[in-house]
């Protein structure tokens, strides 16, 4: 496969994951703000911005944040519209590589969003609208898995998707543990709703309850979203998939470097498999999450060095 194609597939997938994540976060936050006092509404939006790795807006802009996060079309923005536009642009560059069904689904979603972006979010039913976006994305994943050969191209899509997910959830956790503080296992009753919102942002509330019953405790929530091996929106699950995807990528016969890539992802996978939540909480949640993000960055860099921006000299000599 062309290196440029791998690059586009990877980013298409990352942008879509990002859009889905943002859509879910906003939905949960819109729902949450209904139950909050005015003061904490602003706080809620500030945390939402932080959870997406953005600078929190000033209180005056907090209300407009949802609108911006959904519709801001400017490039460089990480709004849902901008993410889907960029994902589509990437898909357009590799149209002959993805199935027609995938392209049509993504294109349809894009046109629906474009039509909607002419309106004000508040004047429509934002929750229903966001649900449609999320559904559209689920449809895209389903179509992808069932219409495309699970070969190299599909693996780059998987790698992009789980890379983005691992990073997104780590960022989300970081914002919550930073703001709400990791005060052992007890929970401030006023923060109760926020912790539930955190779970819901990862569609994890029901799954969490099945494991721990409906008793949200920060350490258990952290354990679930970080270390659970079975739940698709946990960091460990995402990293497992990422590692599997990277391992299945073709071997570069002419370079020994590809083993470096799986060594990096394998190390992160092992760390998540053998970590204990108590130790993490003790030695510092924030540092732990920082280290995950840093390692994800290294994996990304290695992926690019090996498959996409490799120096031509080394390829020619082999």
């Amino acid at each position: 496969m062309l290196s440029r194609v791998a690059d586009s597939l990877y980013w298409m997938s990352r942008y879509l994951e990002r859009a889905e994540h943002t859509a879910r976060l906003i939905t949960v936050n819109l729902d949450l703000t209904l139950d909050l006092s005015h003061a904490s509404v602003d706080q809620g939006w500030a945390r939402a911005a932080l959870s997406l790795g953005l600078t929190p807006p000033s209180p005056a802009d907090a209300a407009a944040l949802a609108q911006t996060l959904v519709f801001d079309p400017s490039s460089g923005s990480s709004s849902i519209v901008a993410c889907i536009m960029t994902a589509r642009e990437n898909a357009r560059q590799v149209r002959e590589q993805i199935s027609s069904e995938m392209w049509e689904q993504l294109n349809r979603l894009f046109h629906e969003l474009k039509r909607a972006s002419l309106t004000d979010l508040a004047s429509t039913d934002p929750i229903e609208f966001l649900a449609k976006v999320i559904e559209g994305m689920h449809l895209f994943h389903g179509v992808t898995d069932s219409t495309m050969a699970h070969g190299e191209a599909w693996r780059f899509i998987q790698v992009g998707r789980y890379m983005e997910r691992a990073v997104d959830i780590a960022t989300l956790l970081r914002a919550h543990f930073h703001e709400l503080g990791a005060r052992d296992s007890s929970i401030d009753p006023r923060d109760h709703l926020h912790w539930i919102a955190l779970l819901k942002s990862c569609t994890a509330f029901e799954a969490y309850c099945k494991v721990y019953t409906a008793d949200p405790k920060p350490d258990r929530i952290a354990e679930f979203l970080l270390l659970n091996p079975e739940f698709p929106h946990s960091v460990r699950y995402a990293v497992d998939r990422l590692h599997n995807g990277l391992e299945a990528l073709p071997d570069m016969a002419w370079t020994k470097k590809s083993s470096r890539l799986t060594r990096l992802s394998g190390r992160l996978k092992a760390a998540l498999s053998f970590s204990q939540i108590e130790e993490i909480m003790q030695s510092g949640m924030r540092e732990y999450l920082d280290s995950i993000q840093e390692q994800c960055g290294q994996i990304h860099a290695a992926l690019y060095q090996i498959y996409i921006h490799y120096p031509i000299e080394s390829a020619v000599e082999a």
Partner: peptide, 14 residues
């Protein structure tokens, strides 16, 4: 182009 041959850059090399 290398040695008067045309190559494309792929994920498995040229």
């Amino acid at each position: 182009v290398h040695n008067n041959l045309v190559y494309m850059r792929t994920t498995t090399g040229l």
